[in-house]
């Protein structure tokens, strides 16, 4: 998901004063579906995991503005332009709500941004792919947002209050994102042969990366168990991925598009679609920084940040001057 990096190892340092008593009292609260709020006692690992999860999610939203933003100047109608701009703006807003939630855990936005720009922090692998045609914008809304929604709705019930509330806000705004993507695909599929081919091409390129968004198989996800116990993660990777495939293949059929998987077939017994093996090497390469657009995405972020330094400093200088004038 936007938080694939969680499946990789984190540090296990613990602060000394975490007695069994405190830990089990904490777990009882979680089990009773109580919300944990910012200054409540929490295990250090809970706090760290959340910081990583929430900040990764925020970074994903911010980086996600780029592949979609890529088609803003070329949107093929004023209506599509407006809808796409509103969507990209929502993503900036979501990033902001999420950074805001993470800050309640004691990390600053500046620190999170620095970690992103240095390459230390992760963001969802999906945004390291290029948007090569207008149909890609449709595919992203339909597939990527579709996948994100599957993860985000359960997170509205996550144990940490600020994160859950941010997710409620996000989900309210998200509902139109997937629909607009599907609508683009639908329009293309009912259009000219060239438009239909454009749509098929986009599906061919975005299908597998979308499945990879859900992260490694459960058997490879060593750290999921603790996150599940703490109700930071509510469903397993494989569960969500299966749910996504089941919903989306039917939508592809409706569109008249072919899912690029020779092994895809409906299994009567289980009532689910069986699908082919994911190329895990591709996922690991992309997460490690070797995807088609990793370098470009980060470079654009770094440039925006450094180009903007004089502006941020000007505002700070003015604020200081105003404070002195008021004191005088």
């Amino acid at each position: 998901m936007y938080t694939q990096g969680l499946d990789q190892a984190g540090t296990d340092e613990q602060i000394a004063v975490e007695t069994d008593e405190l830990l089990s009292a904490f777990q009882e609260r979680i089990d009773a579906e109580e919300k944990i709020e910012p200054k409540d006692w929490m295990p250090e690992a809970y706090r760290r995991t959340l910081i990583r999860q929430i900040s990764q999610h925020a970074h994903s939203e911010i980086i996600g503005m780029q592949p979609e933003g890529n088609w803003l100047t070329r949107a093929p109608s004023l209506k599509r332009k407006v809808i796409l701009l509103a969507k990209v703006q929502d993503e900036a807003g979501h990033g902001l709500y999420l950074y805001s939630a993470a800050e309640t855990l004691g990390v600053s936005r500046a620190q999170m941004v620095a970690d992103l720009l240095s390459g230390k922090a992760k963001y969802s692998s999906i945004f390291n792919y290029p948007t090569l045609t207008w149909a890609d914008i449709g595919a992203i809304g339909w597939l990527v947002d579709g996948a994100a929604i599957m993860n985000q709705i359960p997170l509205c019930r996550c144990s940490y209050g600020p994160y859950a509330r941010a997710m409620v806000r996000v989900c309210k705004e998200e509902s139109f994102h997937q629909r607009q993507g599907f609508d683009i695909m639908h329009t293309l599929c009912r259009g000219s042969d060239e438009q239909k081919a454009m749509a098929q091409g986009a599906l061919n390129r975005w299908w597998w990366p979308s499945l990879m968004m859900f992260g490694p198989n459960d058997s490879e996800s060593k750290h999921s168990a603790q996150s599940m116990a703490w109700k930071i993660k509510r469903f397993s990777n494989d569960e969500l991925r299966q749910k996504f495939v089941d919903a989306t293949v039917q939508q592809a059929d409706f569109l008249g598009l072919r899912v690029p998987d020779d092994e895809l077939r409906f299994d009567e017994d289980s009532g689910h679609y069986r699908f082919g093996e994911i190329d895990w090497q591709e996922l690991f390469d992309v997460i490690a920084g070797n995807g088609p657009c990793n370098k470009q995405r980060l470079e654009k972020r770094r440039q925006a940040h450094s180009n903007g330094a004089w502006v941020r400093e000007a505002a700070q200088a003015y604020a200081s001057k105003q404070a002195s004038r008021a004191a005088a």
Binding site: G69, V88, A92, L96, Y99, K300, H305, G308, V311
Partner: peptide, 16 residues
């Protein structure tokens, strides 16, 4: 054209 190039996230929202 300035989307994703603003000096701060809050300004991205204003620009959009």
């Amino acid at each position: 054209e300035l989307v994703a190039a603003e000096p701060e996230l809050e300004e991205e929202l204003a620009n959009a």
